[in-house]
């Protein structure tokens, strides 16, 4: 069972590599941001798998904090670094 958890964690880590391609290629800022969000979700999954594989319950707390805070960067992005879009969508 431990082997399966580790193999899945490795598979997810490889997935991160695929996501990295999207960060580098873009083309828009939103593409890169969403790839970073995908990283957050994947990291949560990897942490949960490692928690099971190592029977270390503290890692679930790390996963919990990641899951809660992953959205912060995206919210900051939408509110601060995406000003033109916001202005365009606002009714005049």
């Amino acid at each position: 069972m431990q082997l399966l958890y580790l193999a899945l964690a490795l598979f997810l880590l490889l997935n991160l590599g695929a996501g990295m391609w999207r960060v580098l290629r873009g083309p828009t800022a939103a593409d890169r941001m969403l790839a970073a969000q995908l990283f957050g979700t994947t990291a949560v999954a990897i942490l949960l798998l490692l928690a099971q594989a190592n029977t270390n319950a503290a890692l679930r707390d790390v996963a919990l904090v990641f899951a809660l805070l992953a959205a912060m960067t995206a919210v900051a992005f939408v509110r601060r670094a995406w000003p033109n879009q916001e202005a365009n969508h606002k009714p005049k």
């Binding site: 970073a36 957050g40 503290a58 890692l59 707390d61 790390v62 904090v65 990641f66 809660l68 805070l69 992953a70 912060m72 960067t73 919210v75 900051a76 992005f77 601060r80 670094a81």
Partner: peptide
Amino acid sequence: VALAEAAIGAGLTGALLMA
């Protein structure tokens, strides 16, 4: 350390840098 990195790296640094 992983917990601190998760809380500060994921939550705050990204938002601070973005702002």
